[in-house]
Each structure stands twice: as structure tokens, then as C-alpha cells.
Design a protein around this nucleic acid. Structure first.
Lengths: 173, 173
DNA sequence: CCTTACATGTAACAAGTTACATGATTAG
DNA sequence: CTAATCATGTAACTTGTTACATGTAAGG
């Protein structure tokens, strides 16, 4: 259901195609959601079938037609329903932690390589956060409450990532 | 693959049944992995089919037979292979963050309820951590390196949860 | 009497990944 | 010449969830 809800939110803000949604995931929503194009196209089609979206085909010269999706009234209601009820706890799955439980069998160089690679990924994530912040929330003073809300999510993302990075430093000894 | 790897690790430490593994997930591995019994039974049977595990059926009086799984040489190699290569980055999926992007449509009472419920879940997780620590890592001084490794994972779990809790406090204003 | 622990499974479904496929335009 | 951007999809597979199904024994 969560993917559906995320699509409802992004399309409610502005109608668009599967491709558009993918671009938004990469731009301002990189710390919120990611999905492959196949998943999007399939889900959008299903949601249309379920009456949550309408689809308007816009023909284009020399490119595939754009299929612009837009919320229906049922879509808006589904979104409100989803917002109204609290999310289920997310399942715990930390494959990295599992490796720590196999410490004896985990060769020292592999351990270092693992943590180094992770560290790099996290640093890159920090840069993504910085880019999003610069692009969308450059002036926190002037934000309306509705704009400040998504900005909070960025701050948490940053802090969690920092916590990870500090921990890696420590574990590296 | 990760579930397989987690099973290889837990069964390598000590052979056991699907039921046993489930208990271990609940006891010392609650912050590492969780899975339903259906998933475990299915996966264990597949791993046996793939030659990673052997299965010894231990008949019991007045209870279903125990199926005790044990790593084969191929299983040990599969585990070593998994340990050797760095994990892929985990996909970003934060349905809570998505809700923040629909701030205008998200009623105030629902927002409070959501954060309160999450806060409670996190507090409960902190208690789980404390219980695991008391049970398995009560005396950090005497830990061998191999025992200290999994202890580190607990510390990170605790710190990440604390970061979440602090953030919720702040967002609540 | 009711719940928890013990111990296993089948079946259907939902969600996510990977590989393959097409085809023009623009920028380096 | 190569890669990226635009724009869509099919098919097969893996992973995870939910519902249903069975049956004893011990403890409160």
C-alpha cells in the first residue's frame, strides 16, 4: 500500500507521468522513496484500474505518448484514509548487523572494505541531502508550515546518517 | 539472499529447527532480523534443496517431528562468499516522510496520533535493546572481540532510536 | 476454561528485482 | 561515436505477507 500512497501524494501535488514521478523521486524525494520505473508503470496502471487515477494520453511527435495520471475523487479519499491511520512498524532487517554476528568467519580485510564502502555511500547520501536542501529549502526562515514539514524529514535523514557515520568511526577503532 | 545469509549465520552457530530460529530472532536478534514462520520454513526447505543445509528429522512423541537443519560444506562456503562481498545499499522507503509531504491534507489530530504511536513503538524498542543487553552483554569488560562485535550493533540500534525520539520531540514543537 | 508453548505446513497474493526490448534526439 | 534524456512496456523471478489448517500439553 505504501507505494500507492506515495504515488497519490506526488500526483496530488501535480499530475504527471510515470517518468515524471521517477524524476521527482530522484530530485526532492530521494530520502523518502525510490522505485524502479517498472514498478511505477505497473502500479499506476493498477491504480487506474482501481479507479484512483485517470489517465490522459497525450500524443507526442517522435516520442512515445505521455500518459498523464491525475487523482480521482476516489484517489483523494484513499489518500485521506491512508493519512488518517498510523503506519505499521517497519520490519527489522539489518544484514550488516548479521555480519557482525559472524565475526569469527568474517575476514579482517573484508570487514574494513565493508565499512569503508558503507561510509562512502553515507557520505554520498549527505551530499544528496545538501543538494535537496539547497534546491528546495534554501531559506528556512520563509517557509510556510506546509513547507517546513518536509524540511523536518531532511533534518532527520541527516542526523541519522551522521549517527551511522560516527558509529562506523568508532567501530573502526 | 539476505534471509538465507542470516539463516546460515544462525545455524552455523548452532544447528536447529525453523522454530528454534524464530525464537532466536525474538531473543538476541530482535534488532537484526525478523521473519514469519512461513518464510523460515519455506526458505529452510529451499536451502536444503540447494544443498546448503542438511535436514535431520527427529521424531517426538505427541508432538510434530523436529526438523533439525545443519550447514553443509556448501553452506559454509556460501556464507563465506556472502561475508566477503560488501552489501548493496538498502532502498529508501520512508512512508512517514511521505506523510509530511502531504501536510495540508494531514489532519492535526492524526499527526499527533501518528507521532505518539511511533514514539511508543520506539520506546518499546529501547526496552527490547535493554533486555537483550542485560541477557547477553551484561558485562562489557569481559567480552571477547567476537562477542563485542554484536554488542556494537546494539549500541547503534540504541543511538538511532534515540535520534528518532529526539526528532519526534522537536517536531511535536 | 483459556492462553501459551511447541512444531509444522499449504495456498494465494502483494511487492520488488532483473533482464530484455524499442527508438528518436541532443550534448560532448 | 558514445552516452544521456525522453518514454514506454513485457516476462520471469524472488521476497514477504496473510489467511487457513492441525494437534498436544502445561499453567493460571
Amino acid at each position: 500500500m505504501s507505494l500507492r500512497a506515495v504515488l497519490l501524494i506526488t500526483l496530488q501535488r501535480e499530475p504527471g507521468t510515470g517518468y515524471d514521478v521517477l524524476q521527482r523521486f530522484k530530485a526532492g524525494l530521494a530520502h523518502v522513496w525510490q522505485a524502479s520505473h517498472q514498478q511505477l508503470y505497473r502500479e499506476l496502471d493498477r491504480m487506474r484500474g482501481d479507479g484512483l487515477l485517470t489517465c490522459e494520453t497525450v500524443p507526442q511527435a517522435e516520442r512515445p505518448d505521455r500518459k498523464v495520471y491525475r487523482l480521482t475523487e476516489a484517489g483523494r479519499q484513499a489518500l485521506d484514509g491512508w493519512l488518517a491511520e498510523p503506519l505499521a512498524a517497519s520490519p527489522v532487517r539489518q544484514p550488516l548487523f548479521a555480519k557482525f554476528f559472524a565475526w569469527e568467519r568474517w575476514p579482517e580485510p573484508a570487514r574494513r572494505a565493508e565499512l569503508a564502502a558503507l561510509s562512502e555511500q553515507l557520505e554520498q547520501r549527505m551530499q544528496t541531502y545538501a543538494a535537496i536542501e539547497a534546491e528546495w529549502f534554501s531559506d528556512p526562515e520563509t517557509l510556510t508550515p506546509a513547507q517546513r514539514a518536509p524540511w523536518h524529514t531532511l533534518r532527520l535523514g541527516r542526523r541519522l546518517t551522521e549517527t551511522w557515520l560516527e558509529w562506523i568511526e568508532e567501530v573502526m577503532e
